[in-house]
Design a binder for these strands. Structure first.
Lengths: 169, 169
DNA sequence: AGCATTTCGTTTCATATGAAATGATATTGA
DNA sequence: TCAATATCATTTCATATGAAACGAAATGCT
């Protein structure tokens, strides 16, 4: 019988879930407690900071959030004065989202703290090990990319398209 | 200004979250669609299969689920006839949970499929790389263990205590 | 031009989640 | 022995989530 031999603690999906949950909660304690933001709000903020005048759908496609989550996050951030929304002149269905100066300030305070959390974590790894870990995560991603049953990843999260700022238009 | 330089796609907590979400959803498509189980129910099942007569709290402590989630999962699994609940004779507050033969059957069908998902993923890595990835995840865990702000991990998920079956009493 | 289809963002609605409250039982200490 | 406290499982209750429905605007097709 195979059942009793199965050990959850050795099972890759579980191990990933447990590690990710710990890291996510630690990070959340920063942007929630200290800045009153939720995780979707945090992701929206950092995306809008990079590329201004973005639409809801673009954010949705880029930062792994469902459309309703983005819509709600944007609504709350506008309410809080951290970003501004305007309907596009060219296409009235679209919305153009930009950070307000206030939003800039919050992000400039928040990002160093987020990076500190990451730095502390990565401090447990040597430079070579960080690259190795990164490479192995990417390898797992590529395996998922080949699997038609696996959910797709956003284009923004592909290896080299992350940093380059091509307007794509 | 630090804000525009921050790239979410390179941020470790985000990368972990994205990878884990993909893997979790892929696995969920197995136990949900094919067996009608939720993730908490799946975790409860595999834990109960290893150590019988467990209480709600023990499951809670072992498989990274909140107490209400365990309670609800157990209720639904009992309803479905996959496990049986009885109040302990020694301590009437405790509940003793065991797998039914029907639950055994389900698990014996489900586990190979779960292992197949894992195997396909790990197929992207060589044996040495799997060990390396495992080691690096453990290193990140240990860093979190040192951080008082980070959530604790369950004793069951510590490196060597996973498999050994010491009654701890 | 005019109707069908697609693409937006938002809102429903049904479900999932977890912190706190609850009721029941055990344990502790005077 | 018997109150005070602690621990267990469950249940509330307020919030988060995402699939599907929705209305508005753009595009395609004839």
């Amino acid at each position: 019988m195979p059942a009793p031999d199965f050990n959850l603690s050795d099972f890759l999906p579980y191990r990933l879930a447990v590690l990710t949950a710990r890291v996510s909660k630690l990070l959340a304690s920063i942007y929630e407690e200290r800045f009153g933001l939720t995780m979707p709000e945090w992701r929206v903020m950092v995306h809008v900071a990079r590329s201004e005048k973005v639409s809801i759908r673009e954010i949705h496609n880029c930062v792994n959030l469902e459309k309703p989550s983005v819509s709600r996050a944007v609504a709350k951030l506008e309410e809080a004065g951290l970003l501004a929304k305007a309907t596009s002149a060219r296409d009235q269905r679209l919305v153009e989202i930009v950070l307000t100066p206030e939003g800039q300030k919050v992000l400039e305070a928040l990002i160093p703290e987020a990076l500190a959390v990451e730095a502390r974590l990565l401090g447990a790894l040597s430079e070579g090990e960080r690259e190795q870990f990164s490479e192995l995560m990417e390898r797992l991603h590529r395996e998922l990319d080949l699997n038609p049953d696996a959910p797709k990843r956003s284009a923004k999260d592909l290896p080299s398209s992350g940093s380059s700022r091509l307007p794509a238009e």
